[in-house]
Design a protein around this nucleic acid. Sequence first.
DNA 1: TTATGGATTAGCT
DNA 2: GCTAATCCATAAA
Length: 215
Amino acid sequence: VIESSIPRSFVRRELGALPRSFYNRDPRRVGPDLLGKILIRRESRKLLTGRIVEVEAYLGADDPAAHASIGKTPRNSVLFGPPGYAYVYFIYGNHYCLNVSCLSDGTPGGILFRALEPTDGIKQMFALRGIAEDMDLRRLTSGPGRLAATFGITRERDNAKDLTDAKSDLYIADDCSPPPRVLITKRIGITKAAEMPLRYIVAGNRFVSGRMKSF
DNA sequence: TTATGGATTAGCT
DNA sequence: GCTAATCCATAAA
């Protein structure tokens, strides 16, 4: 469509959705490999894109913090289905959070998207959020609730959507940029299994959520 | 820069 | 009832 709405990285390099096989692995492998990849939302002919800089892995029965640990329910059923599909849940009465299912049909697991670095459509992102354009960019996509709001992600609209479909209005692409250096930490905002090192962040990236601290 | 409480719904006991 | 894979405004320092 309009060239300016296409990320420069996609003009330079090959654009392609990550294949389903990418997600058909243990979340502890998928998580770090997702860092540096691109989340893409088509929003009324505009393209919103962000580079993934922070994720968390959630496992199955062995992970008390995981929604899947209680077994399959209508709410979490996507986590038990085939890999590469969106699991969107509503939390704290205010916020949606986006996950992608991992592992084969019948085996639960997923990755929570916690932070993005906005790359294209930033003007539209501010407009969609109703935030003044001179505000810190981190307000848009640093935190799972924030990135979902900025990308217009809701359970009603996006739950169970195939994230490997490049023709969809929500999918994950690989621009074949070099893999970033990854740091592993404890997960955030949970009380159960809080000590498990299942959070993956791009080292030194300023869009990672949480307090400004030294890395 | 850190700490605290309110908002507000789904799911579970 | 209570808690939760959160965010925001506000206050204190």
